[in-house]
């Protein structure tokens, strides 16, 4: 079972599920959570490739770059959640709700 294609498939499933969550939710916090799940799925794919290339003789830095980028994704995700949650708080103050449909000022 522990083979690259299976792990990648797991990542694909998590990613698609995250997308479903993002699309189906109207609560902004839930939306953000689903987004985190998608990022996590990407991380899994990255680590998978990192492990795969370790056996191909690409040197230490080459083999670990997947893991390094996982860390980067985590950092970016943390920043994103920070900003996202702050925006949600701001929206909530103004609209008294965290419903994404409430913020529709950009309506054409």
């Amino acid at each position: 079972m522990l083979e690259p294609k299976v792990v990648l498939f797991l990542a694909a499933v998590l990613f698609s599920a995250g997308l479903y969550g993002v699309l189906s939710r109207r609560h902004l916090i839930m939306l953000l959570m689903s987004l985190e799940l998608m990022l996590n799925a990407v991380n899994i794919a990255l680590v998978t490739f990192s492990r795969y290339w370790a056996g191909e003789g690409v040197g230490m830095i080459g083999a670990h770059s997947g893991q390094f980028f996982t860390l980067m994704v985590m950092a970016v995700a943390a920043a994103e959640v920070g900003i996202g949650l702050a925006i949600i708080v701001a929206v909530y103050r103004r609209k008294h709700t965290a419903d994404s449909d409430a913020a529709s000022e950009l309506k054409g």
Binding site: R26, H27, I29, M30, L32, M33, E36, A77, A78, V81, G82, L85, I88, V89, Y92, H96, T97, A98, D99
Partner: peptide, 18 residues
């Protein structure tokens, strides 16, 4: 992250309107 989410959930109204 989870703690941060929890905090904001407490700040805002968690009962959704769906």
């Amino acid at each position: 992250l989870a703690v941060m989410f929890l905090f904001v959930l407490m700040f805002t109204d968690t009962r959704t309107q769906d």
